[in-house]
Computed example of a mutant assay.
Amino acid sequence: MKHDSFSNGSASATSLRYRKFTPADVSAAHVLSMALGWPYRPEDWQFSAETAIAFVAEERGVVIGTAMCWKFGADRASLGHVIVSSAHQGRGIGRKLMEIVLEELGPRITFLHATPAGRPLYEKLGFSVCGSLEQHQGNAGKPLPVELLDGERLRTGIPADFPGLVELASRAAGLERHALLSAVLERGESVVLERDDEITGFSVLRRFGRGHVIGPVVALRSRDDARAKALIGYWLTGREGEFIRIDVPSETGLSDWLSEQGLQRVDICSKMVLNGPAHEHIDAPDPVCRLYALVSQAML
C-alpha cells in the first residue's frame, strides 16, 4: 500500500476515511482498547505501532477503528489489533480495515488469533483454523521448583546473545523474526538457558498491561518440558503477588502447570491462517526447537 489515505467507497459517508496510523493516534487507539476492556497501556500501543504497519478508520477527525500487521521475511505475516468502536460497529468498518491490511500483505501466508466474535469475519475473508492459543494470567504464586537438566544453567541474557536468540526464535516459529525479536529483546529482560556455552533456550519478560508478560519462550524440547518450565519459573521466582500474563500454544500442554503457578487460563482463541493450507500449519515448524509462549497474540 503506497498511499496514506484510502477512499471508503461510499458517497453517502464521505466523512469516513481510512489512512495510515501515525504516532499521534496512540492516544485514540488506547481509548478504543480501554472501551473493550483491553488492559493495554499507551506504551504498549506505541511499541505495536513502532514495529507494525498500521491503519485507522477515522470519521470527522475521530479515530473509530484500527488494524495492524507485521511482516516476517518475504512470505509470512501476522495481523491483529483489529478494533472498531462499539458505536460504529455493523457498518463494515472492520471488514474494510481487514481488506486494507490484506492488500498490504498480498500473497503472504498470514496468521492471526481470533476471538469467537471475530472468527466469522475472518472465515468470510478466507482464513482457516490451524490451532489454538491459551491466555494465562494472574497474580503469581510461589513457583514450584523446576530441576534443571544435568549440565545446564540459567543466566541473564546480554546483547551479545541477541543474534543467536533471534535465530533460535525464528527456527521455533518458522518465521523470520529479526526485526521484531530484536525490538523485543531491547525492550525487555532476557534469561538464557545454556549447556557448555550452547544456548538451549531463552525467555523474555517485559512490562505490559496490568503488570508483565512472559514471551517469547523458546527452548529445545526436553522431557516434561523441563527447559520451558525453568525459563518461565525463573521470572516467577520472587514475584509472588505480581500480575503476570503468558500466551501459550495449546499443543504445548503447559496449561495445568501454569495454573499451579497461579496463572489461570482466562481465554482460549483460534489460530487462523490465510494463503496456506491449514493442515500444513497445525504442527510445530521444527521437531527439536519449540515456541512455548508468544511475544503476543498479534505479533506471534
Rank of each mutant, 00 (worst) to 15 (best):
H3C: 02
D4V: 12
S5F: 12
N8S: 12
R17P: 03
R17Y: 10
Y18I: 04
K20H: 13
A28E: 14
A35K: 10
P39M: 09
R41E: 11
D44E: 10
R60V: 02
G61P: 11
D75V: 00
D75P: 03
R76I: 00
S78Y: 03
L79R: 06
G92C: 13
R95P: 07
I109W: 07
L112N: 04
A114V: 11
R119Y: 15
L121T: 12
S128E: 15
C130H: 03
Q135D: 06
N139F: 05
A140E: 10
V146W: 12
D150W: 07
P159V: 04
A160R: 15
L165K: 07
V166W: 02
S170C: 14
R171M: 09
L175T: 04
A179V: 12
A179K: 13
L180K: 04
S182H: 09
V191S: 12
L193W: 04
L193T: 04
D197Y: 05
F208L: 08
G211A: 10
V213Q: 07
R221C: 06
A230Q: 11
L231P: 03
Y234G: 03
L236N: 09
D247K: 00
E260F: 00
Q264M: 10
V266I: 15
D267E: 13
L274Q: 06
P277V: 00
A278S: 14
D283I: 03
A284K: 02
R290K: 13
Y292C: 06
Y292S: 02
A293Y: 01
V295D: 02
S296F: 02
S296M: 07
